[in-house]
Amino acid sequence: MNVLRVILAVPEAVVVLAMPPLLMSVIAKTKARFAGRVGPPWLQPYYDLAKLVRKAPVHSRTTTWIFRAGPIVSLAALLTVALLVPVLTRGTPLGFAGDVILIAYLLALGRMFTVLAAMDTGSSFEGMGAAREVTFGAMSEPALFLSFVVLAVAGRSLELGRMVGAPPLGAWGPVGPAMVLVVGALLIVLITETCRVPVDDPATHLELTMIHEVMVLDHSGPDLAAITYGAALKFVLLGSILLHAALPHGGLPAWLDPPLRIAELAGLAVLVGVLESSLARLRLNRVPLLLAGATVLAGLATVLTLMRSTA
């Protein structure tokens, strides 16, 4: 990590941090278009965030400091992950060998604090949502890790910034079939972690069917803003890992990277919007099957990669 890289990271960081709500807007607009509506204005998520930040938070008297720490720790964990994931350029400001494990566990830490904050309220609905979130989180983790294994073997590095996005465009080398499986597995992980249809429905208003939304019912004001923004940021980060793995920019000049990546993220948001509009939400007891499927995909990819790298 040199000084120049850190200075260059500042404008990148500004764009990366400003972008997430806009991508949520892209998803909302895509869904609205499918439903034949106009949809909310492009900047609506920003207005919402600004409104929430201005309000005073309301804390229930039964809650402890954990409830207050929940949103802050989750957002801080995600912001740290943002330093380790390549988003707009190749390489990361803080990458080091083995950072994939830190990334996975920072995501888990954020989730743990959201869950703890939900349980801290003592509400039975929130406890139920917490149980679901933990179950699905635990089931999507093996898929994420096995995907990282494949990427690490293929990229011959343990640093996420070097693992993905390095090989030339369109040439995945000897691990072609495995990469297709990994991209599939990462897409399922992305949808699970960001709580989109078919796993969870961010727009649902029935506590019994919610997963993520039910956990944050008691948060208000700036806390809710942190959670909403964190969810959007998570989409950008996991989406970037997926895009860097699926579409490496190896052969292209480096200055093309940021505009292309922004376009690809927008494309991914449109894809998620299309998926949300065309798929029904899975029955809750079918979700583990989807996640098991993702794990099996990633596991098969691991077997293929290991077979190739030893042969």
Binding site: P288, L289, A292, V296, G299, L300, V303
Partner: peptide, 13 residues
């Protein structure tokens, strides 16, 4: 289904 999927994955491996 999930259990048989895992058995299947083990068989493949």
């Amino acid at each position: 289904f999930a259990a048989s999927l895992f058995v299947g994955a083990v068989l493949v491996a």
